[in-house]
Write a protein that binds this DNA or RNA. Structure first.
Lengths: 237, 237
DNA sequence: ACCTGAACACCGTTCAAGT
DNA sequence: ACCTGAACACCGTTCAAGT
């Protein structure tokens, strides 16, 4: 080849395609969360995130330590969406319930996020701001310090486990409308057990299968936790 | 080669090695649980279970539908180890606590089992016998039917999530003795936050980091749940 | 410092072929 | 019916090489 041929300029006037934006932590987390929302947790692999950014998986490691860190970053980005109320001593129980609802709402907005969150201590800025606000609500309710400190661990544990369970159900084969069929099957399975060995399971088959979708089950768990915490508040004066 | 050579008998007197025992569901579950106990949940792959049984992964699929079914079978095998008390109306709260302790004990005996159990409805015989016994305890305590039915979902959710968290911590790099160092780091991290934004996290740094190992945190959660359920028991008569 | 291709050491599952 | 080898379509992470 000629080193300088007239129809092959040495410096092309323009690259064939616009220069790609450089990779950043932010773009990686954005892309990961987009994949999470659009295609679920299984779609958030280092390889698929890289592919969506039009690069190879190795390129991500300059910005993110590993998959676990990416999971944490996604969680904290999502936690930024949570809006928890300012503490009001008169209504701490309602406020705590509202806070739990809000955390579940955000978890549900990013289906599969619970899989990234479960079992991890969330140390991101936004997750910790949520913790701080929950502590304020509990202290306003005069929940003892040690109980409040453990409660802000127990509450996300409960919510995350709930959202995790929902995401497993959601990721299963059946569409939402098949869920009703599954619940029917489950109830008749309970009903068909040996009455000598499973009398209560049979008797409560209906109660055990209600609230499989919707919020009744979650509201019950929240109520149990709140009532349990309330029982630890010492009498006034 | 000669079709019948004198030093190469057509029917060897004995196979070189004993005939392998045939694969069964039971042997597969046994092997999977052994790997789980010895090497943790990550070691329980279809391929590694097959390898431990001296065969290929495809061979397992004649006995087990898929990995998820194997997880369920492991869980139910472990559930057979659980010994829950007969219901006694006088002591339902203590009995419920004992039942929760027992379920956690078995979970801990199979580290990583929580990862197989989380998010699944356990429909195996032994898991359901545990459920039946918990229902008996709750009914003995006059917990309303719907609350009891949901409680036997909430309680394993809590225990499994707790065990899951422990298994993540356990699978992390640090050995048990490094945990203390990690907790120290965490406490000083909380202490070093911006006092204007995280006043309560700073004030409660000590309380939030106590009970990282041991049973205090679990006992607290169990107490919250039991007290919450007790608050739903209608007054006598 | 950032990015890349290629490789390493894995996964779960399927399928045609054997016995 | 049960078992197998080989393949398919994936993983997370590392590393030497480029710019």
């Amino acid at each position: 080849m000629n080193q300088s041929s007239p129809w092959q300029p040495i410096t092309p006037a323009k690259p064939a395609r616009a220069t790609r934006e450089p990779l950043t932590r932010e773009r990686i987390v954005d892309t990961a969360l987009r994949l999470l929302v659009e295609q679920g947790y299984e779609a958030v692999s280092m390889r698929k995130v890289a592919q969506a950014l039009d690069t190879g998986p190795a390129s991500l490691y300059a910005h993110v330590a590993n998959k676990k860190e990416l999971d944490q970053l996604m969680l904290d980005r999502a936690a930024a969406d949570m809006v928890l109320p300012d503490a009001d001593p008169e209504h701490w129980q309602e406020q705590l319930k509202a806070a739990m609802d809000e955390i579940l709402r955000v978890m549900r907005a990013y289906p599969g996020l619970a899989r990234a969150a479960i079992g991890q201590v969330p140390l991101g800025e936004y997750a910790m701001l949520s913790t701080e606000r929950m502590l304020a609500i509990l202290k306003a309710g005069r929940v003892p310090d040690q109980a409040a400190a453990w409660a802000v661990d127990l509450i996300p544990l409960f919510i995350t486990a709930t959202a995790f369970e929902e995401s497993v159900q959601g990721a299963a084969d059946f569409a939402p409308e098949d869920l009703a069929g599954f619940v029917d099957q489950l109830r008749s399975f309970f009903g068909s057990l040996d009455p000598a060995r499973f009398p209560l399971t049979i008797a409560l088959a209906g109660a055990m299968t209600t609230g499989a979708s919707g919020d009744d089950r979650f509201d019950f768990g929240a109520q149990v936790i709140i009532a349990g915490l309330a029982s630890m508040v010492p009498p006034q004066q």
